[in-house]
Design a protein around this nucleic acid. Structure first.
Length: 277
DNA sequence: ACGAGAACCTGTTTGC
DNA sequence: TGCAAACAGGTTCTCG
């Protein structure tokens, strides 16, 4: 389920186990992820120290000593599993990469669909890496605003739903939070992106920030319990206003239609046709 | 350049 | 109940 808030939550959960720790063992069990693991992946990582963990859009960044950064994307189904006592843990067939730290903690990258990726990049050239070079601004960054959205959406005829999913325009939003943001901003997902006026762009920017902030807060509050319970990071309980709620009453108006589901660029969109114009 | 659609892969849910 | 189809939170490629 990883969109920006989930990746942020995973990052925060990983920090206490990885930051400042040295990787004493790295095992690449299945290198054929969406982007194959780099040559000699395990060899290049073994013995390296994790200086700090960060996030860019939906990517986890582990900055290592020696000037390289490990870049992790969870795809659709990726998780990070933390196992304090690694020796006793069962291994799943989808455990593709395992990291063991100098404190004996195992961090396991598990991804059934293998849409995720792990790669290595020069830290001082991350911005120019092909994964990040064309990436838009962070929706939680200082530069994000209605004016920025207006500029990015100008002359775009694609539906606003599709524009918000385009990582080159804004980086980090996925299907769920785009639906939720448009609902909160009361903007129809079918509107051409370029048709939004300044007021609507302001409303949308505020809605995006609000939805993401609240999701991160929900993830953070569930993190403590969840890690202790199962070691899995990346999934947490969170309720949505419209996402996955086709046929339910709209939470904010008593319209006849309730929450509707349509398909835009092959993906489900949930919205209220009465409230969102 | 832009936008729509398919493809990638596997697991789970839905519908007949 | 059983099986096939539809569907899933992402990205990237092709085609018009």
């Amino acid at each position: 389920m990883p969109e920006l808030p989930e990746v942020e939550t995973v990052c925060r959960g990983l920090k206490p186990h990885l930051e400042g720790r040295r990787l004493v063992r790295v095992e690449a069990r299945r290198p054929d992820l969406r982007v194959p693991l780099p040559d000699d992946f395990a060899g290049r990582l073994t013995g390296r120290r994790v200086e700090s963990l960060g996030r860019r859009a939906k990517y986890i960044l582990a900055h290592l000593d020696g000037g390289e950064t490990m870049v992790v994307h969870l795809g659709m189904s990726g998780r990070m599993v933390i196992v304090a006592d690694g020796a006793a843990a069962e291994r799943s067939p989808h455990d593709h990469v395992l990291f063991e730290t100098d404190q004996g903690c195992h961090v396991i990258f598990n991804d059934p669909r293998r849409f995720g990726l792990i790669t290595l990049a020069r830290t001082d050239a991350l911005d120019r890496h092909r994964l990040f070079a064309d990436m838009g601004p962070e929706p939680l960054g200082n530069a994000f605003s209605g004016a920025l959205l207006a500029e990015r959406f100008a002359d775009r005829r694609a539906p606003i739903k599709a524009a918000l999913l385009d990582q080159r325009l804004i980086a980090g939003l996925g299907n769920i939070y785009v639906c939720e943001s448009l609902y909160l901003a009361e903007i129809a997902p079918t509107r051409p992106a370029g048709s939004l006026n300044a007021g609507e762009c302001d409303r949308l920017a505020r809605a995006v920030r609000d939805v993401l902030d609240r999701a991160i807060a929900a993830g953070g509050s569930s993190l403590r319990d969840y890690v202790q319970a199962s070691g899995e990071l990346g999934y947490f309980q969170h309720s949505f206003a419209v996402y996955g709620r086709e046929g339910d009453p709209c939470p904010n108006c008593d319209c006849d239609g309730g929450v509707q589901r349509i398909v835009q660029s092959n993906r489900s969109t949930f919205y209220c046709a009465t409230r969102q114009l």
